[in-house]
Design a protein around this nucleic acid. Structure first.
Lengths: 180, 180
DNA sequence: TCTTGCTATGCAACGAGTTGCATAGGCAAC
DNA sequence: GTTGCCTATGCAACTCGTTGCATAGCAAGA
């Protein structure tokens, strides 16, 4: 389990409440690690009990109070230890690949519109990544360690989307050919 | 949930026992859909109850009896219906990306050996994919629908591995630069 | 004014997935 | 000749993740 670690990284980059974390997981971090607000609140409570993070109650006017968390010493130590452990192989769940192989026992043409929808959403995501790159990492700018590492992760996302788009074009061509 | 559907596709491609399915999920199918034998046995029982698959007891000498399952009419119908439903967006869990961002709060150099291990295992997988492609889909051969679709999924795996290798080289260069 | 939506946290129940263990015969190696 | 691995299936207990719902004040628009 690495949700704890993903939360720690996010809190080190910027302290925040459970709600704010949930929104970050919907946006940037969610591209390589998803989590719902329920999971986040549960894990935050456990991490606070274990002393990995410290909470501060913030009263707000006009909206509910919030608890702002930040990473504590033991949390940083745990993260450091985790960094040095080997990662378990990622478990992949590529539903579209299952569908493509399933199409052999049905009508391959029936998948075309579904694949086109995927293609569009990947194209949109690539566009967002590229816009984010231009905004946050313009050519020629000097970056610190944190930014360099964020940038290399973003480049991975960009290359993944480019590759996926090309593959989906290949899939579409194949489906069109088979639907004759 | 699509484990049922992945199992159905596998049984349509080739009937088999729970044990055999578990081994297929360790090998080919497991590259885009993982499952343990426990999950498989549980789901098989449910699918048999629901009439999606039919079982035949096979007595073997020298080894335990086995139940060989094959897809039944209602299973094919369910698969056909599922094919026409839109897929939920895949939830990604890219642990290495979390680690890379975490390295900003520790020593980036400490990640190098881990990334190199990943690089090696992706290179090995790419080699296996390419060997499988040469074996099963040699250039110039005529393929039926099923093989065409298996091939396009394999091409996706190959392109994914190539892209990942290039990205990991980028990550390694970045880590070396930051560890100065 | 009524509804919709946002901030902010949480309970309860369920379903999916993992881990450890059990059985049980056969085969091969050391 | 005992140890360990392979086939083949399964129970029990647990953790992880999802879904539906609840609260509660405030803001904006129909």
């Amino acid at each position: 389990m690495a949700l704890e670690h993903a939360i720690l990284v996010s809190l080190l980059e910027q302290p925040g409440s459970g709600y704010e974390l949930a929104r970050r997981f919907d946006r940037s971090i969610g591209r390589f690690w998803t989590a719902t607000h329920q999971q986040i609140y549960r894990v935050l409570r456990r991490m606070e009990t274990d002393g990995w993070i410290a909470a501060e109650e913030i009263a707000q006017d006009g909206r509910p109070d919030k608890k702002v968390y930040s990473a504590a010493g033991p949390g940083r130590a745990a993260l450091s230890g985790w960094l040095r452990e080997p990662v378990e192989p990622e478990t992949v769940r590529h539903e579209l690949a299952v569908k493509i192989r399933a199409a052999a026992f049905d009508d391959p043409g029936a998948l075309i519109s579904e694949v086109e929808r995927h293609r569009e959403s990947h194209a949109a995501l690539l566009a967002r990544y590229l816009a984010g790159e231009q905004r946050d990492f313009p050519a020629g700018s000097t970056l610190d360690t944190r930014q360099e590492l964020q940038h290399v992760v973003l480049r991975g996302g960009i290359e993944y989307e480019r590759m996926t788009l090309a593959w989906l074009d290949d899939v579409l061509a194949t489906l069109h050919r088979l639907a004759h």
